[in-house]
Amino acid sequence: MNILTLMYEFFKTGLFSVGGGLATLPFLYEMSDRYPDWFSHADIADMIAISESTPGAIGINMSTYAGFRVAGIPGGILASLALAAPSVIIILIIARFLAKFRQNSLVEGAFYGLRPASIAMITAAGLNVAKVALVDLNAYAASGNLGDLFVWKALILAVLIFVGQKKLKWSPVIFIALSAVAGILFKF
């Protein structure tokens, strides 16, 4: 029963997440709120990190990892297949009608609205990770001092990574590895 609920949730995620793997994030946060024993918000942030440093599309990595957390190895495999199923079905239909699909002004109009909506939801997901990584609400509540609200060493690291990625154009994997080392050295 638990596995069926899991597959249903990931099928729904696959059906409604438009715009790539990160678009699955808001659905994962929703799932975490609805089924707190599946995975926590902090777990989702860890999943993103693992996804970024391993091969494959981020959405698939997330469903495998979340599925494993809920129901072991079968959970991981079934959640991934459930996530993939709706897009396979839809692409098979589109492939048959490709020429018509491209010229349809209704479809064009829908995408005109969907694109900004999808990056808005990715932004909101980023804010959720930032709340865990860059901000310390407990320290702020305890001292009432605004300077305690931000985790300053984390903010400095964030700026360094941002500038470093712009200038150096290394793979994200390298920056993730370096951030892990920084986290260990400076006790994040």
């Binding site: 860890d46 993103i48 990190a49 990584a133 994200p172 920084a182």
Partner: peptide
């Protein structure tokens, strides 16, 4: 500690 560092990187990647 490593994951706390990695989470910072994830914010930037997003």
């Amino acid at each position: 500690h490593a994951f706390a560092g990695i989470r910072v990187c994830v914010c930037v990647l997003i």
